Amino acid sequence: DETGKFLVLSLYDYQEKSPREVTMKKGDILTLLNSTNKDWWKVEVNGRQGFVPAAYVKFL
């Protein structure tokens, strides 16, 4: 199980638009929880879990 094993870097600021999403700032290091959807990845940032656009992050 690779859940929570990968870190990704936020390339852009992102403001959550729904309760299922999370806000991140450019340069944030996020824990990747799920990347099965090619468009939206589930991450943990600042103690919160939610989705961010996959195009806004990259693997470290």
Results as ranks from 00 to 15, higher is better:
residue 31 T to E: 09
residue 6 F to N: 10
residue 29 I to A: 03
residue 54 A to N: 02
residue 58 K to G: 12
residue 30 L to M: 15
residue 14 Y to P: 03
residue 54 A to Q: 04
residue 2 E to Q: 14
residue 51 F to I: 06
residue 7 L to T: 08
residue 30 L to E: 00
residue 1 D to N: 14
residue 15 Q to V: 14
residue 49 Q to K: 10
residue 15 Q to R: 09
residue 36 T to Q: 12
residue 5 K to P: 14
residue 59 F to K: 11
residue 27 G to D: 05
residue 16 E to M: 12
residue 27 G to H: 04
residue 33 L to A: 02
residue 4 G to F: 14
residue 11 L to V: 09
residue 52 V to Q: 01
residue 31 T to H: 10
residue 4 G to A: 13
residue 11 L to G: 03
residue 55 A to K: 15
residue 39 D to C: 15
residue 48 R to N: 07
residue 1 D to I: 14
residue 49 Q to A: 11
residue 19 P to A: 11
residue 38 K to F: 07
residue 34 N to I: 07
residue 25 K to N: 09
residue 37 N to L: 08
residue 21 E to A: 06
residue 4 G to E: 13
residue 57 V to Y: 03
residue 51 F to W: 14
residue 53 P to A: 03
residue 10 S to M: 06
residue 9 L to W: 06
residue 58 K to R: 13
residue 38 K to R: 12
residue 47 G to H: 05
residue 52 V to A: 02
residue 6 F to G: 11
residue 24 M to Y: 02
residue 9 L to Q: 11
residue 12 Y to C: 15
residue 1 D to C: 15
residue 50 G to R: 02
residue 49 Q to G: 06
residue 3 T to A: 13
residue 44 E to W: 06
residue 25 K to S: 09
residue 8 V to Y: 09
residue 6 F to K: 12
residue 36 T to H: 11
residue 21 E to L: 06
residue 38 K to P: 14
residue 9 L to I: 15
residue 5 K to S: 11
residue 29 I to L: 09
residue 31 T to N: 08
residue 39 D to S: 11
residue 32 L to P: 00
residue 16 E to Y: 05
residue 7 L to E: 06
residue 39 D to Q: 11
residue 58 K to M: 15
residue 32 L to K: 00
residue 33 L to G: 00
residue 56 Y to C: 12
residue 51 F to C: 12
residue 36 T to G: 10
residue 34 N to R: 06
residue 10 S to L: 07
residue 41 W to K: 01
residue 16 E to K: 14
residue 31 T to V: 15
residue 27 G to K: 02
residue 46 N to Q: 09
residue 52 V to M: 03
residue 13 D to K: 02
residue 14 Y to E: 02
residue 40 W to S: 01
residue 34 N to K: 07
residue 23 T to F: 04
residue 48 R to F: 07
residue 5 K to R: 14
residue 1 D to T: 14
residue 41 W to L: 07
residue 22 V to K: 01
residue 45 V to N: 10
residue 28 D to K: 04
residue 19 P to H: 10
residue 59 F to I: 15
residue 17 K to R: 13
residue 55 A to E: 10
residue 24 M to R: 00
residue 52 V to Y: 01
residue 44 E to I: 08
residue 12 Y to L: 10
residue 11 L to E: 04
residue 26 K to P: 04
residue 13 D to V: 04
residue 56 Y to A: 10
residue 46 N to T: 04
residue 32 L to I: 07
residue 39 D to A: 11
residue 33 L to Y: 04
residue 24 M to F: 07
residue 40 W to K: 01
residue 2 E to A: 14
residue 28 D to H: 06
residue 46 N to Y: 08
residue 20 R to D: 13
residue 28 D to Y: 05
residue 8 V to R: 02
residue 26 K to T: 06
residue 33 L to Q: 02
residue 26 K to S: 07
residue 35 S to A: 14
residue 47 G to W: 02
residue 16 E to G: 15
residue 36 T to K: 11
residue 31 T to C: 12
residue 57 V to K: 00
residue 42 K to S: 07
residue 23 T to S: 15
residue 28 D to Q: 13
residue 18 S to C: 10
residue 27 G to N: 06
residue 17 K to H: 08
residue 54 A to T: 05
residue 25 K to V: 09
residue 54 A to C: 07
residue 23 T to N: 06
residue 15 Q to C: 11
residue 31 T to L: 15
residue 26 K to D: 03
residue 34 N to C: 13
residue 16 E to C: 13
residue 28 D to R: 03
residue 56 Y to G: 07
residue 7 L to F: 14
residue 44 E to N: 05
residue 54 A to P: 03
residue 26 K to Y: 05
residue 7 L to G: 03
residue 57 V to S: 00
residue 5 K to Y: 13
residue 43 V to W: 01
residue 45 V to W: 06
residue 5 K to G: 11
residue 7 L to H: 09
residue 33 L to D: 00
residue 34 N to M: 08
residue 30 L to T: 01
residue 37 N to A: 08
residue 16 E to H: 08
residue 31 T to W: 12
residue 56 Y to T: 07
residue 46 N to S: 09
residue 45 V to M: 11
residue 15 Q to Y: 14
residue 15 Q to P: 08
residue 37 N to G: 10
residue 32 L to Y: 03
residue 46 N to V: 04
residue 19 P to N: 10
residue 20 R to Y: 14
residue 29 I to R: 05
residue 46 N to D: 12
residue 13 D to T: 06
residue 4 G to T: 13
residue 25 K to E: 06
residue 53 P to R: 05
residue 29 I to W: 05
residue 58 K to L: 12
residue 60 L to C: 12
residue 51 F to T: 01
residue 50 G to I: 03
residue 49 Q to D: 06
residue 51 F to L: 09
residue 13 D to P: 05
residue 18 S to D: 12
residue 59 F to E: 08
residue 54 A to L: 02
residue 47 G to K: 04
residue 35 S to G: 10
residue 52 V to H: 01
residue 18 S to N: 12
residue 38 K to V: 10
residue 60 L to E: 06
residue 4 G to I: 13
residue 41 W to N: 00
residue 40 W to C: 07
residue 50 G to S: 01
residue 13 D to C: 07
residue 19 P to D: 12
residue 18 S to H: 11
residue 45 V to A: 10
residue 44 E to F: 06
residue 10 S to F: 06
residue 24 M to V: 10
residue 40 W to D: 00
residue 3 T to S: 13
residue 40 W to P: 00
residue 48 R to G: 04
residue 22 V to Q: 02
residue 44 E to T: 06
residue 43 V to R: 00
residue 31 T to A: 09
residue 34 N to Q: 10
residue 17 K to I: 07
residue 58 K to S: 12
residue 34 N to T: 07
residue 59 F to A: 11
residue 2 E to G: 14
residue 2 E to M: 14
residue 21 E to M: 06
residue 4 G to W: 12
residue 43 V to L: 02
residue 24 M to S: 00
residue 55 A to P: 08
residue 27 G to W: 05
residue 23 T to L: 03
residue 16 E to A: 15
residue 49 Q to M: 10
residue 7 L to K: 11
residue 34 N to D: 15
residue 14 Y to N: 02
residue 6 F to Q: 14
residue 38 K to Q: 11
residue 36 T to N: 12
residue 17 K to Y: 05
residue 4 G to H: 14
residue 38 K to T: 10
residue 28 D to F: 05
residue 21 E to R: 04
residue 56 Y to H: 07
residue 46 N to P: 03
residue 39 D to I: 14
residue 31 T to K: 13
residue 60 L to Y: 12
residue 39 D to L: 13
residue 37 N to S: 10
residue 50 G to W: 03
residue 10 S to G: 08
residue 25 K to P: 01
residue 60 L to H: 08
residue 42 K to W: 15
residue 45 V to D: 02
residue 49 Q to H: 08
residue 38 K to N: 11
residue 2 E to W: 08
residue 29 I to H: 05
residue 8 V to S: 02
residue 9 L to V: 15
residue 8 V to E: 00
residue 6 F to S: 11
residue 9 L to R: 09
residue 4 G to P: 14
residue 55 A to H: 12
residue 20 R to L: 14
residue 34 N to A: 09
residue 11 L to C: 10
residue 3 T to V: 13
residue 50 G to Y: 04
residue 9 L to G: 02
residue 37 N to F: 08
residue 49 Q to L: 07
residue 28 D to L: 06
residue 47 G to P: 00
residue 52 V to L: 05
residue 40 W to G: 00
residue 52 V to R: 01
residue 34 N to P: 03
